[in-house]
Design a protein around this nucleic acid. Structure first.
Lengths: 154, 154
DNA sequence: TCACTACATTTGTATATACAAATATTGTAC
DNA sequence: GTACAATATTTGTATATACAAATGTAGTGA
C-alpha cells in the first residue's frame, strides 16, 4: 500500500517526512501483528521480552537494572511489569541477600515452557511479516536501519 | 549503533527477527525525538496530526470518522483527543445540523498559528533524523517499506 | 556514629492506547 | 408509524508508557 493511499492525500511531502511517516505506518502494522499474536498467550510483547531476557541469563538471577538495560523499550515500569509476570507464575522475585537494594528475578519452569511454546510460532509470524522482501532486500533494510540510527542517542 | 550493541547479546537471530527488532529500535528512537519535540508546544504527536488533517480541510469542517480514517494510528479515542485540543482552544466542535449524529470539527485561528510555528521546525527535526542517509538511500528505504507493507492489512 | 551521597527499586500521577459497550440519531421495511 | 438495523460518537475499563518523587539500603568521610 502506497503512502498516499494510507494518508488519503496526494500532497507532495519532503523526503524526510515521507520516510518518517512511511516508517510509523509500517511499524504500527507490525505492532498490531505482535499485539494480537501475544494476546492468545495472555502476555504482552514487553512481558515476553522480559521472559526472553531472563531465559538468556541461563538460571542466573537478573536484577531490574539488568533487565531494563536489555529491553528495547526502556521504561521505569519494570517493577509493575514483573508484578504481572509473578501473578501469572512466569517469574519469581526475591531480595538479593548481598545487597538488599537489589532484587533477583528468575524465570520459572512455567515461564520457560511458555517460551518454548511461543518461540516457534513467533518465528513463523516474523517470517510472514517479512515475506514480501527477498533476503537481499531484508539485508539492505537492516543496513539502512543501522545507518539511520548511526550515532543517534536512544 | 549495531543491533548487537543495543541488545547486549551476540546471539545469532533469524533475519526476519533481526529485521523486526532493528525496526522497533529505530522507531522508538524516532518516537522519542517526536515526543520531546512536541512537548515544548504542549501537544502530542497525535494532537498535531489532527491539527494537520483539519488544516488540510481548508476550512471545511471534518467529522470524527474522517479524522480517524486519515490518522496513522487509528484509535477509538478521537473524542478525547479532540477534547484536549478544545481545552487548548486549537479546535472547535459543533453538532452537524444535517445529521445530528455527526460532529463538525474545525481548526481555530490559534490552531493554524501553532501549525505555522511548528511546521518549519518539525521539518528541520525530520531532516536531522534522516541526515545519516543519502537521498538515494532514503528513496530505497521508502521503496522497501512500501514493499514490506504490500498487501498487509492495517 | 552522624550526616551525606549514591544506588536500586517502588510508587504516584498524567497521559496514551485498545477494545467493548452504551448512547443517540437516522434510515428502512413492513 | 413501529420495530429493527445502521451510523456516528461517546464512555467505561484495562493496560501501557513516561516522568518525577519517594522509599529503603549501602557506602564514605569527618
Amino acid at each position: 500500500m502506497k503512502l498516499e493511499e494510507v494518508l488519503k492525500s496526494d500532497a507532495v511531502l519532503p523526503l524526510s517526512k515521507r520516510t518518517a511517516i512511511n516508517f510509523f505506518v509500517t511499524n504500527h502494522i507490525f505492532m498490531e501483528n505482535y499485539t494480537s499474536f501475544f494476546k492468545q498467550y495472555d502476555i504482552s510483547l514487553q512481558q515476553f521480552n522480559v521472559l526472553r531476557i531472563l531465559k538468556g541469563q541461563k538460571g542466573k538471577p537478573a536484577n531490574l537494572a539488568t533487565i531494563q538495560e536489555r529491553m528495547v523499550h526502556k521504561n521505569s515500569n519494570t517493577t509493575r511489569l514483573i508484578d504481572k509476570l509473578i501473578t501469572k507464575d512466569l517469574v519469581e522475585r526475591s531480595i538479593c541477600p548481598e545487597n538488599r537494594r537489589k532484587v533477583e528475578i528468575v524465570i520459572t519452569k512455567n515461564g520457560l515452557e511458555l517460551l518454548e511454546t511461543i518461540n516457534p510460532k513467533l518465528n513463523a509470524l516474523e517470517e510472514n511479516m517479512m515475506r514480501l522482501l527477498t533476503i537481499n532486500e531484508a539485508e539492505t533494510l537492516n543496513i539502512l536501519l543501522e545507518k539511520l540510527r548511526g550515532s543517534q542517542s536512544d
